[in-house]
Write a protein that binds this DNA or RNA. Structure first.
Length: 520
RNA sequence: UGCCCCGUCGUCUAGCGGCCCAGGUCACAGCCCUUUCACGGCUGCGACACGGGUUCAAAUCCCGUCGGGGUCACCA
């Protein structure tokens, strides 16, 4: 079976997480059946900087590894793939519809239509346009134009019977034609509307399966009407439920960001992103830099595989236990039939769990490569890191282990990179571990001397040194470990102390110990 | 308002008449591990919206109620 699917974003400047999921389903479905996935651009609104507004969207898909066979940038045999370039084609389709009696010129003024509609609503009666200003003959049209009216083109919808179609997710659908209005398909200025353009494009691009969000379900009958009117065989349909807000069933939208921030989990992920962004000098507007926008995840250092895997499982499941899918497995196992028919709420905490998993799978060298750009942007490492720099970063990545949940988390270890006299202290930790325990100062001073005398400074040697120290002083390890960590990193938490000391090296450990002792 | 869609733990879901007094994930709580943090291990908490049918048997089928959502543009 030949399968061709499409995703048609408008150039808005950002890629919405719900849109990505829809695109992902389209992509997987097409590729699974050996077909093509097309990326078409819905820029009928013709705003000025299409290229600029499109770039982040295309970039997002590329980052996620969702590639398209035809469409923007790559072209293809069924172009143009930009709706703004097909105006004549749409107008021709409109003419065909008129010629066949499926559409008509209409000269009603907006207020006149409004009045009719309100009258119907007041009487609680199903509204249908009276077609009073319909211009069927040239004479009628001329007459209306003489009155200074400008015509649009409307669909002449049936008012009896029903439209039946099959939906791959919802099953048999039937909507009575009487529910439909005489929708406008061409504006007074001659430009064409979505319903018309979409049907024409799907036909021109030989789309076989229209997989889209359920808010388009109600557009389907009129699109089928247009398709048939034009002599096209309508495609197959699959309306996937929209992605809902965190903790709600409302459609996710970037507009309600303020409200999502009241959700503690969402806020946490958002704040984490802000922290990372601030350190790498990224200028962020909450509008376009938040967990609803895909770009956010790239900037914070998430893995594309984690984002895609999470999105795959948002409204779809293979069985009762499989959670992790490689790209190959996704392609092999995806099916429309298993898409859940109820809306699924977006839970960025769960996305984080996938991120944790994929990050843990990553070899140290790959993590090091992933993390380095963040250090560079934060000016903690030179733009051309030396071999020694890389080795140091690698050692930190290794020691940090599972604590690095996103690439941006490397910035939690910035104290390894700052100059000794620039080290910032967590005052609470400093108080608790160094000032409060009466013996802390003396112990730290003694440890400093031991460190100064150390011949080797690797983790194993340091572990032995610490244990000998503890035995000699007749104290518990905990009595010195925390104090030393605060002294040397400024923080109360971090990875293993032996690794910490080793990475810093003897000189810096001594310098930092001295500085801490001086503050006591 | 009309039309349409949806309704299993807080979340994502498994379930398509008996395997289910409902299984898994995330989250949460407790315990264990442990130099802090994180990881990991174990345990716990926790749902078939409600009411009628059909059936020997219903989360699964039918009807109704309630609830949630979508859509009714010269937006896409």
């Amino acid at each position: 079976m030949l399968v061709r699917t499409r995703f048609a974003p408008s150039p808005t400047g950002y890629l919405h997480i719900g849109g990505v999921r829809t695109a992902l389903f389209n992509y997987l479905f097409a590729r699974k059946h050996g077909g093509q996935f097309i990326l078409r651009i819905d820029d009928t609104d013709a705003n000025r900087n299409v290229a600029e507004a499109l770039a982040p969207i295309l970039h997002g898909f590329k980052w996620l590894g969702i590639t398209w066979d035809e469409g923007a940038e790559v072209g293809g045999p069924h172009g143009p793939y930009y709706q703004s370039q097909k105006l004549e084609r749409y107008r021709a389709a409109v003419q065909t519809l008129i010629a066949k009696g499926f559409a008509y010129h209409d000269y009603a003024r907006p207020e006149e239509v409004k009045t009719e509609r309100e009258a119907a609503e007041a009487e609680k009666r199903l509204y249908h346009y009276s077609r009073k200003w319909m211009g069927e003959t040239d004479a009628q049209r001329k007459h209306f134009e003489m009155e200074g009216r400008r015509g649009v083109v409307r669909l002449r919808m049936p008012r009896e019977g029903s439209c039946k179609f099959n939906d791959h997710i919802r099953g048999a659908m039937e909507v009575s034609w009487a529910q439909e209005q005489d929708h406008v398909i061409q504006r007074a200025d001659g430009s064409c509307l979505y319903n018309l353009a979409s049907v024409v494009d799907d036909h021109d691009m030989q789309i076989t399966h229209v997989i889209r969000a359920e808010e388009h379900l109600s557009n389907t009958p009129r699109q089928i009407f247009i398709a048939r009117g034009l002599g096209y065989e309508p495609p197959e349909y699959a309306h996937v439920p929209f992605v809902a807000e965190p903790g709600s069933k409302k459609k996710l939208s970037k507009r309600n960001l303020a409200q999502y921030l009241k959700n503690p989990d969402f806020k946490k992920v958002f704040d984490h992103g802000q922290t990372v962004a601030a350190q790498v000098g990224l200028k962020t507007a909450a509008e376009t830099f938040n967990p609803v926008i895909v770009d956010f995840y790239e900037q914070v250092g998430y893995l594309p595989d984690a984002v895609v895997n999470y999105l795959l499982l948002l409204g779809w499941a293979l069985d009762d236990k499989t959670e992790f899918f490689t790209r190959a497995e996704m392609l092999a196992k995806f099916s429309l039939e298993k898409v859940n028919s109820a809306a699924a709420s977006f839970d960025c905490k769960k996305l984080s769990a996938f991120q944790d998993h994929y990050m843990q799978q990553l070899p140290v060298d790959e993590k090091t490569a992933l993390v380095t750009p963040f250090l560079r942007k934060a000016a903690l490492v030179p733009s051309e890191p030396s071999a020694a720099d890389t080795a140091k970063v690698r050692a930190i990545v290794q020691a940090a282990g599972d604590r690095l949940k996103t690439a941006g988390d490397i910035l939690d270890y910035r104290d390894f990179f700052v100059a000794d006299d620039q080290l910032a202290y967590d005052e609470k930790a400093f108080e608790k571990r160094l000032r409060k325990p009466p013996e802390a100062r003396a112990l730290l001073a003694k440890l400093r001397e031991r460190l100064a005398a150390a011949e080797t400074f690797d983790p194993a040697a340091l572990e032995k040194l610490l244990h000998d120290f503890v035995a000699a002083e007749k104290i518990e390890l905990g009595q010195i470990v925390h104090a030393a960590r605060v002294a040397v990193t400024g923080k109360g938490v971090g990875f293993g102390l032996f690794e910490t000391l080793a990475i810093l090296g003897k000189e810096r450990c001594l310098a930092r110990s001295d500085r801490a002792l001086a503050r006591l």
